[in-house]
């Protein structure tokens, strides 16, 4: 777009006016860039402020205890900050959520993109959007007040456990998984589908053998984004996970209560105090930093994976 305009300008404007125009354009561009950078600076600020308060924790207590011990006693003498069980708790509910959201989400996305007629698809879209729109505190309220008693009636000892949270988080992650993987499936062109049908493959064979492998990286990105949503969720786990800092026995026992990073930050911030400069305050920022880094990593991987797919599809 730039070329025709500048050539036109050079036709009618003096060199000085041209300079002024270039200068103002340059300034305007710079201003826009500066405003745009707010979001970027925001990320850096977040990283900086979280890291600034997280580093003292590692200086005070080192790495080993935090990552390897399961003794989480932040408020008694002597204090112990073994967060392993909390990491495991976060991991467990995220795994559970992924187990719920990934198969359901990918199946739903396949169905939406290739099986259902257009009209039905339009009707299903709002359902997904509604699932995405419901506030997390409403999900948490449902998990605590409605879902936990249901689970208990089904025979669980306590209704607020990893299973409860996993299912709810899975439902919350579904919209992300469905919409991102549907996009990925749509990005695979008609040619592949038509080629496969022409060779006599059924729809299932076409999708599973041709389309899904071609869109696999996009689907992976979708699942990663879903996992990110589940891992970062606070209210549901705070209200309904039971908050017990333990590694379930055996580790995959979803019927036991667990504690997650996000819930620990939300729940413990009340006592942690940076006035007294205690490790207790900084440990929460250390957890925040771990969450942040993990989410950054997930995000970068998913972007990378998507860009690979884009390149691959272009190449073909």
């Amino acid at each position: 777009m730039g070329t025709p305009r500048s050539s036109r300008q050079s036709l009618v404007m003096s060199a000085r006016a041209n300079l002024a125009a270039a200068l103002s354009r340059w300034l305007g561009n710079g201003l826009l860039l500066a405003i745009t950078s707010v979001a970027a600076i925001g990320v850096l600020f977040i990283l900086f402020f979280i890291a600034r308060d997280a580093v003292p924790f590692f200086q005070l207590r080192g790495f080993k205890e935090f990552f390897t011990s399961t003794h989480w006693y932040p408020s008694q003498e002597p204090v112990e900050f073994g967060a392993l069980s909390i990491f495991v708790g976060s991991g467990l509910v995220t795994l559970g959520a992924a187990l719920v959201a990934a198969p359901l989400g990918v199946a739903a996305a396949l169905c939406l993109s290739d099986v259902l007629p257009f009209g039905v698809r339009q009707a299903v879209k709002p359902v997904i959007e509604m699932l995405a729109a419901i506030p997390s505190v409403a999900y948490g309220f449902f998990a605590l007040v409605v879902f936990a008693p249901w689970l208990q009636r089904l025979g669980a000892i306590t209704g607020t456990n990893a299973l409860n949270v996993s299912i709810i988080l899975g439902i919350m992650a579904l919209p992300t998984v469905v919409s991102v993987s549907e996009d990925a499936l749509q990005a695979v062109g008609r040619e592949l589908r038509e080629g496969s049908y022409a060779l006599g493959a059924t729809r299932a064979e076409t999708l599973l053998r041709t389309i899904v492998p071609a869109a696999s990286s996009g689907i992976l990105a979708a699942v990663l984004l879903g996992i990110m949503r589940a891992l970062g969720e606070t209210m549901v786990v705070w209200m309904a996970s039971g908050n017990a800092a333990q590694i379930p026995d055996p580790w995959f026992n979803f019927l036991e209560p667990v504690r997650t990073l996000t819930a620990t930050i939300a729940g413990d911030m009340g006592e942690a105090d940076h006035v007294t400069g205690s490790a207790r305050y900084h440990v929460l920022f250390a957890m925040g930093l771990c969450l942040l880094l993990f989410c950054f990593a997930c995000n970068l991987i998913s972007e990378w994976v998507v860009s690979i797919q884009r390149r691959k599809l272009k190449g073909e």
Binding site: H71, W72, Q76, T160, N243, A244, A245, Q246, E256, R259
Partner: peptide, 11 residues
């Protein structure tokens, strides 16, 4: 004494 790690914590 330490409170056992299996205890559920509520807010």
């Amino acid at each position: 004494e330490k409170i056992q790690s299996g205890a559920e914590y509520v807010g």
